[in-house]
Design a protein around this nucleic acid. Structure first.
Lengths: 244, 244
DNA sequence: CTAGGCCAGTGACATTTGTCATGCTCCGGC
DNA sequence: GCCGGAGCATGACAAATGTCACTGGCCTAG
């Protein structure tokens, strides 16, 4: 339907992608850790933290965003815990967090960061699942973009968020709004979580301190609700929806 | 350690790679296209093509590598087919291809590109699986790096490759050399391939035009060889090794 | 030619899964 | 206080899955 998703001023993507402005700092070393701020002449530069577990991607994002004259990358981290530490140490204006990270995922890191530092968070993710968006918003995240976003767009998003606005990828927002809420019960979710890995019902039952039959029951009812024909399929489906 | 990775009998296969002439032009669709070269004073810049299906990553890599004074990104593509077209159109010195791409994966694209254009290929991948490295080398790829590579390293790799040398990530090379070769028979692989999706034995049997019992046999023997306790686990394991 | 490997199939069998009918408890509504 | 429903739990039963033993065809190396 009409832009409920609009989330107010969603970027709406006014054309003007514009080439990346050149100039700026051609940062050299991209190691993890606080980045040397250097002469801080800029009047209103946005101080940014970047967290992504893939070294190459992290470095590339740093390079990309440092090209923007009004953005300055002040820290980068390779996992959720490091991101929290860096955020506390450098107090950035905006934190760009990858969702898939070891130690603590993007949402967990966002929660901890927002509890400790006055800043704003943008979550970036490869698989944009509706349920995850919901959880992200519940954690007071300000922005949510998939990795399929055009590179030029990212700077706009960061500026929007720095200015106090929110940005939700319209595509995901629409999906999240149409997708019905999770019909599964807590126990069913428990069982499904374990079913994603290769684990026998027995093993799941032990982990959950339940009788094997009970686990099968949960799995079965979950399969019915999700219209799946095996627990693996059901688990896969629940994962795609972001319910587990 | 760059060189290393002699990889012994990589050539082995010797199979007559199919002709793979780049046939008719496929659908245009893909917005990405040649990058404006601009006035180019540089005498010996490396002309680079970048292919990655994630827009954000692609853009970030372009930004990262364009920062290098001796590298010039002349084309970018979002899928394997587009990469081949771009490579033919722009004849770059080096092609940086993501392994995971729609239409044609990195290795397939590399094969086609190398058959049509005198250039060199570097494959980048998220999950560096030994078997895939083997296949990549068989396709005459010059470089193979995981996305966990430090960003600064990438430019070195591209320069090495442009100079005619090869670069194989030492970590993956070591794994590939220690890891034993695939112990599975062709039929077992067929059956396993289908087992990765959620499919009953019956369905697999139909696809393969085999009796259900036969499929179960293949699956069972594969499970034994891979020390797995379910076909899903076996399929997962074979996938991790890059055998399917 | 013959042994041995891979392929294809069959049938019997034990296990693992998925389905169902059935209790139990804890709610909220009337 | 009673009812109905949702969630939790279980055991019995049927179907799918994995294991084993064995037959035969085809091809290749010795």
């Amino acid at each position: 339907m009409s832009g409920a998703a609009g989330a107010g001023g969603v970027g709406a993507g006014g054309g003007a992608a514009g080439g990346v402005a050149a100039g700026g700092v051609a940062a050299g070393g991209v190691g993890v850790g606080p980045v040397d701020a250097g002469a801080d002449g800029a009047a209103r530069g946005i101080r940014l933290l970047i967290a992504d577990d893939e070294h190459l991607i992290r470095g590339a994002l740093v390079a990309l965003l440092n090209l923007e004259p009004d953005i300055e990358v002040v820290a980068s981290a390779a996992d959720g815990v490091a991101a929290v530490e860096q955020a506390i140490a450098t107090r950035p204006d905006v934190c760009l967090l990858d969702l898939e990270m070891p130690e603590a995922d993007g949402i967990e890191a966002a929660t901890r960061i927002l509890a400790a530092v006055p800043t704003r968070v943008v979550i970036v993710t490869r698989h944009a699942r509706p349920g995850v968006l919901r959880r992200a918003l519940a954690s007071k995240v300000s922005g949510f973009v998939p990795k399929s976003t055009p590179a030029e767009e990212l700077a706009h998003v960061i500026r929007d968020v720095a200015a106090g606005r929110r940005y939700i990828d319209p595509e995901i927002a629409a999906t999240a709004l149409t997708a019905e809420r999770c019909p599964l019960t807590d126990r069913e979710l428990d069982a499904l979580r374990f079913s994603r890995s290769t684990m026998s019902v027995q093993q799941i039952a032990e982990r959950l301190h339940l009788a094997p039959g009970t686990v099968r029951n949960y799995l079965s009812s979950a399969m019915t609700k999700l219209d799946a024909s095996s627990r693996h399929e059901a688990a896969e489906r629940a994962w795609e929806q972001g319910w587990i």
